[in-house]
Design a protein around this nucleic acid. Structure first.
Length: 297
DNA sequence: TTTGCAATAT
DNA sequence: CATATTGCAA
């Protein structure tokens, strides 16, 4: 009498296989956070199954001991009155997230699997399993993404992405670039659609390793952090997916986009076009956190 | 509470 | 310019 059992069965069938989700678990680490880790002891403890780490939100000013003088960022942020100069309260500013095509791909994938209906920032964020990603990050991007879709729906009825959108109508030089690189799965068109709420693709909640009924527990977020963070002496943050991918080259390399930095005596000679350089450094000296997935696609 | 979106700031 | 942030409305 209930279609519940119906869609339920299908749900499992349509469920993205672990492999499908595997690539969907990336670990984005915020630089401060990574540094804060100070490289955990890769000794005892090697549970490839569930690695639980109590999130460590506060990122204390790391002793940036890198070659040459790196900006010393420490006390700042308006002062606030000098009340007790304690640690950087929770007003730490995160680096700007650089949405790389791959990261965006993940974003689109998540949205595609969630369905426009359930594609809300929180869910997307959880489904992406990208450590460091915040709801605001996704929300902000989601906003832009929606605008992009809207723009395309209005002009191109189906063309849209198609991959190389390079000259399609509706591709505003401002919005495409990133979005146009992503093969919009289906027509993320209006949900209403045919008059009956038909779940596009379901995926009530994140999908753990074991297929289980929707643990609709109001449990707060707590599933994240899967992977190993390694800090390279180079100042680069190497991130190893706890999964099966382990390529020294494919380590996610998040770069910080430091804002409010201080004395930035930076001088970046404009990077030519390499895949491995202090990318992102704008002429201003802003650092960015770039995500690099484990070579997907 | 979260979400969506315009405006705004950097 | 790309994001982040904010303010306000469901």
């Amino acid at each position: 009498m209930r279609e519940d059992s119906n869609w339920f069965s299908k749900w499992e069938e349509e469920l993205p296989s672990p492999e499908e989700l595997m690539p969907l678990s990336q670990t984005l680490i915020t630089p401060d956070l990574a540094i804060a880790f100070d490289i955990p002891n890769p000794s005892t403890n090697h549970s490839p199954q569930l690695l639980h780490q109590t999130l460590t939100p506060p990122a204390p000013p790391p002793s940036n001991n890198n070659n040459s003088s790196e900006f010393v960022d420490s006390a700042e942020l308006g002062g606030g009155g000098g009340s007790g100069g304690d640690e950087p309260a929770r007003t730490l500013k995160r680096p700007r997230l650089v949405w790389t095509p791959q990261l965006h791909k993940r974003f689109v994938d998540a949205v595609a699997h969630l369905g426009i209906k359930n594609a809300v920032p929180k869910t997307i964020m959880q489904l992406m399993s990208v450590d460091g990603l915040t709801r605001e990050n996704v929300a902000s991007h989601l906003q832009k993404y929606r605008l992009y879709l809207k723009r395309m729906q209005g002009i191109s009825s189906g063309g849209g992405g198609g991959g190389g959108a390079g000259g399609g109508i509706g591709s505003d030089p401002a919005t495409d670039h990133l979005f146009a690189s992503s093969p919009v799965p289906a027509h993320f068109l209006h949900p209403g659609g045919g008059g009956r709420p038909g779940p596009d693709h379901f995926l009530p909640t994140f999908v753990p390793y074991h297929h289980h009924p929707p643990p609709q527990q109001p449990q707060q977020q707590q599933y994240r952090q899967i992977g190993h963070i390694g800090l390279q002496p180079n100042g680069h943050i190497g991130l190893q997916s706890n999964g099966q991918f382990e390529h020294p080259f494919m380590s996610a390399r998040p770069v910080l986009h430091r804002i409010g930095g201080g004395p930035v005596g930076h001088h970046n000679p404009v990077v030519p076009y390499v895949e491995d350089v202090e990318s992102g450094t704008a002429a201003n000296g802003r650092k960015v956190l770039t995500l690099f997935p484990t070579g997907d696609d």
